[in-house]
Design a protein around this nucleic acid. Structure first.
Length: 619
DNA sequence: GGGGGCGAACTCG
DNA sequence: TTCCACGAGTTCGCCCCC
C-alpha cells in the first residue's frame, strides 16, 4: 500500500468514489487516467460535493476509531485476545468441509445477451443502460475503464465510441430462465442471487455421478453455453463465500476450484484482499485498513483481539470467520420477501404539486406491484433525495395492513408534507412488515415465474447472502410464526381510534383548527368534478371505499387531496385550466398542520461507523 | 433492561 | 446536449414504552 500524496497537483487521488474494487476485464486499465477523468467530470457537481461530505465524515469516524484503539491498554488487549481465541475455536468447530458449492456468474450478462441479439455489436465497446447510469459494460468497453454503476456521460468521455443499448429486462429474464433450467439439473434447490448469478450445492451430484467439483463445473459451463450461447464463470469451493470469490478468479469463461481441504482454504485466504469478500465494501475496507492495517483475510486473524475490542459481536464474528475461510454451507429452506419498494429519480424540483403528483405515481406503482403478489404491508417508508444528494428516510408503522394506492398515498403524503418545503431529485416508497398470511406464499427466487420477473421489471428476489456466516441463522429465512388474529383485530380497533401511529397530537382537535370549514370549502370547490368526495354513512369514501371515521378531518382532507391530484392529472391531460383548484389546494396545504421532525437536515449525524461501533452490551 | 419503531448507513448486482 | 439508478437486504444507534 503506497502512501498517496493528496496534494494539489494530484487532487483526483483523494476522490475515492470510483475504482475501489477492480472488476474482471479491467486489469490493463490505466487506472490513474480513468480516475482523473472521473474526477474532472465530477468535480464541482452537487454529487461530487456530497461525496466529499461523506468522505469527510468517514475520515472522522476512522479517526474516532483510531482514538478508541489508542486508549486500549495491554491489559485490555490481553483480555480481548482471550475472547478472540475462544471465538476462533468455536468458529473452527463449525467448519464443514463435506459440501461442494458452486457459484456461477454469467460473463457481462446483459451486454452478452444484447450481443447475442445483435451480433454486429460483437467486438465493440458496449454499455447497457443510459446516460444517467449504465448497468453492464462489455469487456471491450471495460478496457477503457467503463464499468457497471458508472454514469453514462462519464463512460462516454472515457470511451467516445461507446455504444449504448437500453436495458431490456424481458430479454435478460428469458436467458436467465434458460440458465436456471440447467442449474435445476444439478441442484433443484439452487439459490439465485440475481438474474445472472446462482449458488448450487453440487455435493449430491458429485457423489451420485462420481464426479469431482471440477468436472461438474466444466460440464455445467458447457451445458449453459449449449442452451444459451452465453459463457459463464464458475467457482467451486466448500462454502458459498469462497465459491463466490473463486468464480471471479478466471473470469471470463473460466473456472477455479478450491479443494475441500482446510490447508488449501487457509492458504487461499491468507493473501486474499478483504475487498474480494462479499459484504466488505468501500467503507469497511477503508476502516479496516486505516484503523487496523488489515488488507488481507489473514490479517483478520492477526488482529483478532482488536477486532473483538473495537467492533460488535456480530461484526467481529463475521470478520474472524472470513479470516478462517468459513461461509454458508446449508441451503436455507424458505426465503421470503421482506420489503417491496419503488423509487424514481427526476429533474430536481421544489414544486409541491409536482412532488405530490410524482408521489401519487410511485404509490400507484408500488400498490400495483404489491397487488400482483397479494402483499399487504404495515410499515411505510418514504425515501427522499434532495437536490444536493442528501438522502433521508421517514417511516411510519401503521395500525393496519394496507395495499391500495389510496391508503399508501394517504400516509406517504403525510410523511412528505412534514418535510416540505424541499427541493428533491428522488422519491421512493417502501412497504415492509407484511401480513403473516402473505408470508406463507413461497417466494423462492428459483420458483419465480418468468412473467413475474418481467412484470416486476427487475431482479426482485435477490438472495442477499448476508454475511454468509458459518453459524447460519436459518430463522432469517424461515416462515415467521403466525400472529394472533386477535392481535390483528385489536390493531384494527385501534386504527379506528387513531388513524395514524404518530404521537397522539395528530388526533388533537385543536390542531384541526378550522378544518371543518376548510374541508367544506375545499370539497365544494371540486363541484361535480371527478375529485369530489362524499362520505357514505359518514365514513366511507364514495370514490374508493376507504374508511375514515368522522373526526379524522386531516386524514379526510389528505385523502381528498389524493382524489384531487387524480382529478388534476386528468384535467391536465385534457388541457383544462386548473389554476383555481390548484390554488385552493395550495392554500389548504399551507394552512394545514406542519409537522417538523426533531431531526433537521443538517443537525442529525449518521452513524456511518455503526458497523464498527461496539455496542454497550458487548463492552 | 428488553423490545419495538425509526432513521441512517453499508452492500450487492 | 446529456451530468451519478433501482430494488433489496442487513446492522446499528437512539429513543420511547412497558
Amino acid at each position: 500500500m503506497e502512501p498517496k500524496s493528496e496534494g494539489e497537483d494530484r487532487p483526483w487521488q483523494s476522490y475515492h468514489t470510483a475504482y475501489t474494487n477492480a472488476k474482471a476485464g479491467m486489469e490493463g486499465v490505466d487506472k490513474e487516467k480513468v480516475h482523473k477523468v472521473i474526477y474532472e467530470m465530477s468535480k464541482g457537481s452537487k454529487y461530487f460535493e456530497n461525496e466529499q461530505r461523506k468522505e469527510a465524515f468517514i475520515k472522522q469516524k476512522i479517526e474516532n476509531l483510531r482514538q478508541q484503539r489508542a486508549k486500549l491498554t495491554d491489559k485490555d488487549i490481553a483480555h480481548f485476545q482471550k475472547i478472540a481465541e475462544k471465538k476462533i475455536v468455536q468458529l473452527e468447530a463449525s467448519r464443514d468441509l463435506t459440501k461442494t458449492w458452486l457459484h456461477t456468474d454469467m460473463d457481462a450478462f446483459y451486454a452478452a445477451v444484447e450481443i447475442l441479439d445483435n451480433p454486429s455489436l460483437k467486438g465493440k465497446p458496449l454499455a447497457v443502460g443510459g446516460m444517467s447510469m449504465i448497468c453492464t459494460a462489455s469487456y471491450e468497453a471495460r478496457k477503457f475503464g467503463v464499468r457497471a454503476a458508472m454514469p453514462g456521460f462519464i463512460a462516454r468521455k472515457l470511451c467516445p465510441d461507446l455504444i449504448f443499448v437500453p436495458t431490456n429486462f424481458d430479454k435478460y429474464t428469458h436467458f436467465s430462465e434458460l440458465t436456471r433450467k440447467v442449474f435445476c439439473r444439478y441442484d433443484p434447490n439452487f439459490i439465485a442471487s440475481s438474474l445472472d448469478e446462482a449458488y448450487l450445492n453440487v455435493t449430491e451430484v458429485c457423489s451420485e455421478r462420481h464426479l469431482s467439483g471440477e468436472e461438474v463445473a466444466t460440464e455445467l459451463r458447457s451445458a449453459i453455453y449449449d442452451e444459451t450461447g452465453l459463457t459463464c464463470s464458475v467457482g467451486v469451493a466448500p462454502n458459498r463465500m469462497l465459491a463466490k470469490v473463486c468464480s471471479d478468479i478466471n473470469k471470463p469463461n473460466g473456472q477455479f476450484i478450491l479443494p475441500n481441504d482446510r490447508g488449501a482454504v487457509m492458504i487461499f485466504v491468507s493473501s486474499l484482499p478483504i475487498r474480494k469478500i462479499g459484504g466488505i465494501g468501500k467503507v469497511t475496507e477503508h476502516m479496516l485498513r486505516d484503523v487496523l492495517g488489515i488488507t488481507t483475510c489473514e490479517d483478520m486473524l492477526k488482529n483478532s483481539a482488536l477486532l473483538c475490542a473495537l467492533l460488535s459481536d456480530l461484526s467481529s464474528d463475521f470478520f474472524l470467520s472470513v479470516g478462517l475461510g468459513l461461509g454458508g454451507t446449508h441451503t436455507p429452506e424458505h426465503r421470503m420477501r421482506k420489503s417491496i419498494s419503488c423509487e424514481r429519480t427526476f429533474a430536481s424540483t421544489s414544486d409541491t404539486t409536482l412532488l405530490f403528483q410524482k408521489l401519487a405515481d410511485i404509490a400507484e406503482n408500488l400498490s400495483s406491484d404489491m397487488q400482483k403478489e397479494n402483499l399487504w404491508g404495515k410499515n411505510l417508508t418514504l425515501k427522499l433525495k434532495t437536490s444536493s444528494f442528501e438522502v433521508r428516510t421517514r417511516a411510519v408503522s401503521l395500525q393496519k395492513y394496507i395495499s391500495s394506492k389510496e391508503e399508501i398515498l394517504t400516509h406517504a403524503s403525510k410523511l412528505l408534507k412534514a418535510e416540505l418545503p424541499l427541493s428533491l431529485r428522488l422519491m421512493g416508497l417502501r412497504m415492509s412488515q407484511f401480513r403473516d398470511e402473505d408470508k406463507h406464499s413461497p417466494v423462492d427466487p428459483t420458483q419465480k415465474t418468468l412473467s413475474e420477473f418481467i412484470l416486476s421489471g427487475s431482479s426482485l428476489f435477490k438472495a442477499y447472502e448476508t454475511q454468509d456466516m458459518p453459524s447460519e441463522n436459518s430463522g432469517d429465512f424461515l416462515l415467521l410464526e403466525d400472529k394472533n388474529l386477535c392481535e390483528l383485530d385489536a390493531a384494527r380497533e385501534k386504527e379506528h381510534r387513531c388513524i395514524t401511529s404518530e404521537p397522539e397530537s395528530s388526533c388533537k382537535r385543536e390542531e384541526l383548527g378550522d378544518s371543518n370549514i376548510a374541508n367544506d370549502t375545499y370539497e365544494a370547490s371540486l363541484g361535480n368534478a371527478n375529485g369530489e368526495i362524499r362520505w357514505i354513512n359518514d365514513y366511507i369514501c364514495s370514490e374508493c371505499g376507504i374508511e375514515l371515521p368522522y373526526g379524522f378531518d386531516e386524514e379526510r382532507r389528505e385523502h381528498a387531496d389524493y382524489h384531487l391530484a387524480q382529478f388534476l392529472q386528468q384535467e391536465e391531460k385534457a388541457h383544462v385550466a386548473q389554476d383555481k383548484v390548484y390554488h385552493k389546494m395550495l392554500h389548504r396545504s399551507l394552512s394545514s398542520r406542519k409537522k417538523q421532525k426533531a431531526s433537521s437536515p443538517g443537525g442529525k449525524f449518521i452513524p456511518i461507523d455503526a458497523f464498527f461501533t461496539k455496542g454497550k452490551k458487548n463492552m
